[in-house]
Design a binder for these strands. Sequence first.
DNA 1: GCGAAATAGTTTAAGATTAAAAGAACTCGT
DNA 2: ACGAGTTCTTTTAATCTTAAACTATTTCGC
Lengths: 181, 181
Amino acid sequence: MSFTRAVLPEHIDAEFKVGESPQHHRGELRLWLRLLTVANLIEAEIRKRLRERFGTTLPRFDLMAQLERAPEGIFLGELSRRMMVSNGNVTGLVERLVQEGLIERQVSERDRRAALVRLTDHGHTVFAEMARAHSDWVAELLSQLTAEEQKALWSKLGDLKLSVHAATQPRAEAGTTEEDR
Amino acid sequence: MSFTRAVLPEHIDAEFKVGESPQHHRGELRLWLRLLTVANLIEAEIRKRLRERFGTTLPRFDLMAQLERAPEGIFLGELSRRMMVSNGNVTGLVERLVQEGLIERQVSERDRRAALVRLTDHGHTVFAEMARAHSDWVAELLSQLTAEEQKALWSKLGDLKLSVHAATQPRAEAGTTEEDR
DNA sequence: GCGAAATAGTTTAAGATTAAAAGAACTCGT
DNA sequence: ACGAGTTCTTTTAATCTTAAACTATTTCGC
């Protein structure tokens, strides 16, 4: 009886941090903390595996993932928007990926401020391999959920996403055209 | 009819990135992408507000939140574990917060390697104000969900958390003692 | 055409983050 | 006590990140 509780008091997550506010919005905080914790847990695992098996990082992988869907190339600004990171950030990432020969930059003829980036052939090859592994990893991490549970969770997260958008973007009350797939 | 679709093709999220893998684990990827996107959306908004209104950052806030629950102080290692970040990271954060007079370090007498950190009086005061605002912000961002929806989402995220743990921690098949509240 | 304003990217300064190596102090067996 | 091994923390080198300032270029009003 005794050691059930004593053996591993571990599992002291970030979630352990709840309770800031006296009583007010406890449920919301708890939900947010858990969401954050789970996302971090998965992200950390994926980062670790990307580093160990491919010697790369999540931001680089994400950038390449964006490029893969746009064979004709993407301008840096558009890339920045899609990745939801700053322009300066993209500048640096692109620099390193060009260095590694995975992507290439090409200044636009019609607008010499703008530059298009796209995967090189080598980049395509490398990314294909990484994407396969990445996909498998995610599936592995979520494997305890049934397809139905996944679907339900996905749907509820959609509601949450709408709630966040509603609270952060005062505008656009019309049909939001969720480009979501 | 025509402009319903044309007006705002916006909302090009990180979620726009799905579809890496040909067919394999599409559902899982989609779920993970949405989870990540939502978490990032909320986190970005909170970071922004913390910076704008309090001139601070999320990691500093998180660190203080941990300390607030431990009036007697916490050792750096324990802090690192609870925040789920590296030791070196904590070293730097603590440095800056000490600099700002919000927390204090105290080398342990019994073990001169270890140092206890705790909030200063000023730190307590400042944190209380930030925590209240933070709590309100989170509640605001989640406000479109009913209490029931929140609860359901929280529960499903718990299942997901278990799934991730199962896939990342090969050990401990016994009662996992989820220190979760 | 001209100059103002807008746009695309880069640079800069500061911070956050990690893994790996190093330093310092403690524990324990003998 | 002695030294091996462990533990707590810091340091280091690299990357990622952002906001703000800056450069170069384009667009637009007139």
